[in-house]
Nucleic acid binder design. Structure first.
Lengths: 174, 174
DNA sequence: GCTAGCATGTAAACGGTTACATGATTAG
DNA sequence: CTAATCATGTAACCGTTTACATGCTAGC
């Protein structure tokens, strides 16, 4: 997931590590700022795998920067990860949003639509949230105030997401 | 987080591991079903910490069950985790929802309201989501279809959650 | 005879956080 | 002079996933 974000941002333009961190922060808000201990090892992995190239530049008032850019292999890897997401990436909202953030880098609109349709299918399978004795729980019959809240918020999210998915898929298939 | 769920479910009634797993599945839907490799070690940790007691019963048509129940220390630990959630628990939606699921086990309504208020404060701090150059990005000006979708869904979620929080806090302070 | 569900567990690998470490520049 | 921001990195630890392992019962 972190690797996907790094590849995604580098696909737009070359950046140094610190900038990547700032971009990720801007995308997520300050929910879960990414830590250095995750970021720099991830970059090193991508460089070793030949997906990212680096050249060192004098830093603007600080340590020298490692300016990173995507290689051809890196671009291909990014597109693969977007095209063939793992099931987890489709079922976990958090991950799916990260995927969405970079889905524009998939060149083919049909392939973009296919990813959205996978998510749509998941959201439409029953039992994707909050079941009790095999039956979906309605907000009114939730055992307490707090679970009622969970249900309300979950329902609002899912409703809006389904609406958007339908519109977006239609638009991609214009 | 897993430990919180285990403590939370055991607070309602004694259960064996397999049942706990089923409850967690019912709460999350089949998004991220919890794995055995996470569940059983977590139970063992809680037993070692004296928060959970176990007695073995013959299984209904299967291996013998370890029936788990909360100790007094376990109940206290659950309430502590609910009362004094870490910042992560408040800022991460996923974690906050898990917390909500068991918040009814906090005996004091004022303390329940305090937890909700912490979440409310977080949701109202600017920059909690999707910023660019220090400015919040509006859905219309998002760079592409997909990020527009992210924003729409995020906004719908946050709107509904804020509305519910306001109502719930008011209700708790009746 | 086989599959599905019940029920428990372990070991390796992975991805991430936390804490530690360094050092330079700029603004108050 | 001190805090914030820029900029990079390592090491220990932690919780989780994935894969492996076992074995019983009920229904097809």
């Amino acid at each position: 997931m972190l690797e996907l974000s790094i590849l995604g941002f580098l696909c737009e333009e070359p950046l140094h590590g610190y900038e990547v961190k700032a971009r990720i922060l801007g995308l997520n808000g300050h929910i879960r700022p990414i830590s250095d201990g995750a970021l720099y090892p991830a970059i090193t992995r991508l460089v070793k795998a030949g997906l990212v190239e680096q050249r060192t530049e004098p830093g603007s008032g600080a340590a020298p920067r490692r300016v990173l850019s995507l290689t051809a292999a890196g671009r291909a890897a990014l597109q693969d990860r977007l095209r063939v997401p793992k099931d987890v990436d489709i079922t976990d909202g958090q991950r799916f949003f990260t995927l969405l953030a970079f889905l524009r880098h998939l060149p083919d609109r049909a392939e973009q639509a296919a990813v959205l349709r996978r998510r749509q299918t998941f959201l439409n399978t029953p039992a994707s949230f909050f079941y009790r004795d095999g039956e979906p729980v309605r907000a009114e019959e939730a055992p307490d105030l707090f679970r009622q809240g969970m249900l309300r918020v979950a329902r609002a999210t899912s409703t809006e997401e389904k609406r958007w998915l339908a519109e977006a898929i239609a638009a991609l298939e214009d």
